[in-house]
Design a protein around this nucleic acid. Structure first.
Lengths: 228, 228
DNA sequence: CGGCCGCTTGATTAGATTCAACCGTCGTGG
DNA sequence: CCACGACGGTTGAATCTAATCAAGCGGCCG
């Protein structure tokens, strides 16, 4: 990101309420309409813990991981955001510093920027949006309860299945292509443990693996594993 | 709770914005000012998963647990709410059914009720409150990231220490007095494991235990354990 | 009095982490 | 051009944490 002043993408700003109407559904991305666009390589940082937000971002292409550093620096991935999703708005709205980090999960991830000033101005002049925000934030809060219960009560094996199901969707049913370490950090386990499970799934013909790429063969088997 | 029509507590309704200004700080409770009040025994249910909310509640006395049923019916406690806190507002605001359950953690827990109708009316006529809501909900969302990281990356021993620290505060520095099972469900572990850890802490003179009551002796030792 | 519930303890098992080593690839610099 | 080192991925073995199973205890209520 650096320190150069970023300019708001006016096109994205104007489509903001679409995001909150559709509740996270992607907004079609058309390159020429965007005023500014930032291209990222894998692991390039979008924002980081402790810093104060200067605006929000929209993912246009690729995937972004939201994560926290836990004990001894181990990443815990909290969220994966795909094209169309808005990131960083919680810190802007709460007026607190970021308490998480965001970085590109893949090469060629593309995002745009909307300044806090523009975002707040837009929000304040739009009562509908405010109500949708309240509704959206509340919905998300509810979902966290499910997430916590999944993370605490399921085994690593089950969580791995859940992660694959989630990524299958994030990759639009195509091959999953993430670093083993990132996968492990999503599941909340050691990289070695994750690899062993991937191998098991491969042996059971639930997935195929070629290098970093994972293709799901038997989706319902994964669901069965996840649900116990 | 039952099916009898509940009446909104007008006093609490009028103090609602105080809650969101103070960000969860207790609102002093004065019995005679409250129009209606509901007295609960331990484990009495306030609301439950799947049901549609009819209103929100404020805790006046005692403690309320918010929890979810995970696999094979095991409770995962998501939150503990003390006097002054508002519960159930996320489902009202998201307009979804509850995805968690609420029940009294102790005997003699007292709550009051504010109907969705009154709450929404109040909210809609109060722009300040709406903005505070957005801010409050966003802050809470940020906090969940920390919570998830704690739950996934810390050992049962560390989480037990965290739970005791939290409850110490919830009990206003007095003796903690919760069922072992509830404690285990906060930590996200088996009751037997929790008991063994409590014993360890007792042996190390970090706490004293008499029956259900736990008194913390060495607060900083607990913090050290929790932080690793 | 009998039975249930919450609590506790012991023994065993299973799941997952940790440590150590090795491999292949890729990029860099001598 | 090759050597080297870094990095991501993988495997094996040892270890440890926590879950599970089984049983016993004490108190309280019907």
């Amino acid at each position: 990101m650096g320190s150069t002043a970023l300019q708001s993408c006016q096109f994205c700003l104007s489509k903001l309420d679409l995001f909150f109407i559709d509740n996270k559904k992607s907004i079609a991305y058309n390159a020429d309409e965007h005023s500014f666009s930032i291209l990222l390589k894998r692991n390039e940082v979008i924002f980081s813990e402790g810093k104060y937000p200067k605006g929000i971002f929209q993912v246009h292409k690729g995937l972004v991981k939201i994560f926290k550093y836990g004990k001894d620096g181990k990443e815990q991935i909290i969220q994966i955001c795909k094209a169309g999703e808005i990131i960083g708005f919680r810190a802007v709205l709460s007026e607190n510093p970021y308490n998480v980090n965001a970085a590109a999960l893949e090469d060629n991830t593309e995002i745009c920027f909307i300044s806090s000033r523009d975002f707040n101005h837009y929000k304040n002049s739009n009562l509908q949006l405010q109500n949708r925000l309240i509704q959206e934030l509340s919905t998300e809060l509810q979902e966290w309860a499910d997430f916590v219960t999944d993370m605490t009560q399921r085994t690593v094996r089950q969580r791995t299945a859940l992660a694959l199901i989630f990524l299958h969707e994030a990759y639009d049913e195509k091959e999953i292509n993430v670093a083993r370490e990132d996968l492990a950090n999503m599941v909340g386990t050691a990289t070695e443990s994750l690899i062993r499970l991937i191998n098991e799934f491969k042996k059971d013909s639930i997935i195929t693996v070629s290098a970093r790429k994972i293709q799901i063969l038997d989706f319902s088997a994964l669901k069965r594993i996840a649900e116990d």
